[in-house]
Design a binder for these strands. Structure first.
Lengths: 201, 201, 201, 201
DNA sequence: CATGAATGAGAATTCATTCAT
DNA sequence: TATGAATGAATTCTCATTCAT
């Protein structure tokens, strides 16, 4: 009993070690340069060992991606306590960007990277769908409360997602074009710009 | 003199041949599959020859990126004839997305891809700066005409760029999440959503 | 004593399990694809366990080969009841091919495969020698009965073995060169061709 | 002119070096142990170099196989000068075995080895078909001359091929079971055994 | 100017085998 | 007895790059 539990725990720990190191490496050298060999060296195990825990390289990346979505979803849920619909929606956008910028590589994995995103994995976008539904709910609350003008919910959600995704991805991918000292100001300003607009005047 | 001019011209032509073929290949097979060898085969020269014109693979990609910005800039200029500031600004956004979606690889090169866009090369992004200035001009025209409420120009430009970039990059990178048949509707809707907002009511 | 007997029996059973599964696997996936891991999976034990019963992969293959010879020998014995020497010899050849074609992997193990049949193990080929003796006996009976002309027995045996082995191995290894629908006809015809010949006319 | 010819020759020489060494290695270590690395080491080039001359490992093996068939075919043709049909047919069988035993690995490649014999390569069995036709012609000549009794040509050819193939492959694959000093005697005897038989008495 | 030839470095992956427990 | 964990040593193959000619 105790033994099998310990084994289980150790296995989990090893998986975590691999995933964490993969993520780290991935952050440091980018997707196409994250190799099994480097990963093995990093964790001080042989390359073959990694294959005991993950079928292949894609599975590692895919698992990271899944974790990213889950982490993101959890992160996003935090703002659902906010009572006021408008405040909640505003917080939604702000939190989205917060997550993206403080978990850049996770964000890349979720929305920017090509691989490993295979057809077969589409159903694992479930967590993402939940998050997207949350956005729609929050928008709907604002509309219902008469704070935001009525419109097609799908379009509103896509619009707002595009907006925050645009902000996040520009900062992540081309942030070096924007002087560090004005970045925060621009982000905040952009969020206000949006808020100013969807609020019914 | 005539000789050295001819040589110059020939060199330019060869560079163009390489770059055009690289772009083509890049579009066809994607970034990580665009190899020097395939490129050489395509232009019917040896791999070694390519190194007579470009220092390394990165330089090719970097040059392509520069070309992409120039093409983009030219594309964007087309809407400057429009007299009405509001129409012009609206067209600006629409054209941006048009360009991105009908030149996906160019767009990736410009705003999504990691690779060659190195800090050190920043000053070469003149065309991009010009485009960004164009956006600011168009926004300013709207404000001056009283069509759009006054606000910090940098913030307005960043906001609007983020918005269209968000739309374009979602479609390019995660388009498979959105059924083909609703994509156009969402894009159009999103553009309207934005327009609705920046127009003073 | 009872205990050690049971242990012995259990050990034998385990060995049998391993060998049977190895043979099965070997038939299914071919020699070079029969891996210890697949074998372990098949018997639902760990790879390491297999090494408690067999020194290495070669020993398994070698044992299988031995088993193949035994099976073959038993199979061949079935025709010894036939009284008539000529009929018996004819049946001998036919049975040989029957065995080979309905137990292709066994046959490969015995006569075609490089692997474990090492010089050093020659003395273990008792069953094979028995079978070969049986062939010689059958030939001798025919000669004694005046049905077949007298000749060097070794040569006659080698000749007839070569003949049936040739048929069997062509069909097994290059059967794809011969249309399926004529194979049986050719085999039967070839057997008759032989019979026609060794029968004194 | 002279240059391109020299280059051509050098290329051919390199290919020959690779093929010869592959064959050599193949003889020494067997099929599954003939690796690109060992081959590269043997010829004192890097593994990558080999890929400049052959697409992959299979292509090397396949080329060797093709060469084997051609060599075999040429070898077999030598006996066609013999006028007397019976002598010719007898020589045919003898030569077949001569070739097989003095070019064992070629013979393995042709008729014993599994790989690389892919569907796509079937048409390259042309040389083999020519040889087979030659056998049939020789048999037919004997029949026509009344030396051999009339019978289905396909069956006769398959029978005789089986016979010599049986002899050759037993000696090649299980020769160690037969004392060196009697091998030749057995082979000769077996050939006579066959000849005795197909000759009409 | 152009290139054929070559390669070092590295990619993902597999496997038989060992050993502490 | 059984095994989970680990690995060294291979495997095939690819690629950007160099350099003598």
């Amino acid at each position: 009993m105790g033994i099998s539990e310990r084994k289980d725990r150790e296995k989990k720990e090893m998986e975590k070690l691999i995933l964490d190191s993969a993520m780290q490496l991935f952050i440091e050298v980018g997707y196409k340069n994250m190799t099994i060999r480097k990963l093995a060296e990093r964790i001080e195990y042989s390359p073959a060992t990694i294959y005991l825990y993950f079928k292949d390289k894609d599975e590692i990346l895919f698992t990271l991606q899944k974790m990213a979505f889950e982490k993101f979803h959890k992160f996003q849920l935090k703002i659902q306590d906010i009572e006021d619909p408008l405040e909640r929606l505003t917080a939604h956008g702000k939190t989205y960007i917060d997550f993206a910028l403080s978990n850049r590589e996770y964000y890349e994995l979720m929305f920017l990277m090509d691989s490993p995103m295979k057809q077969e994995c589409l159903d694992d976008y479930k967590a993402e769908l939940d998050s997207y539904q949350q956005l729609k709910d929050n928008i709907k609350s604002c509309m219902d409360a008469g704070i935001m003008k009525s419109m097609d919910l799908e379009i509103a959600a896509f619009s707002m997602w595009s907006y925050v995704h645009g902000i996040a991805s520009i900062v992540i991918k081309r942030g070096f074009l924007i002087p560090k000292e004005v970045q925060q100001n621009l982000i905040d300003g952009a969020l206000n710009f949006l808020a100013d607009n969807y609020v019914r005047k």
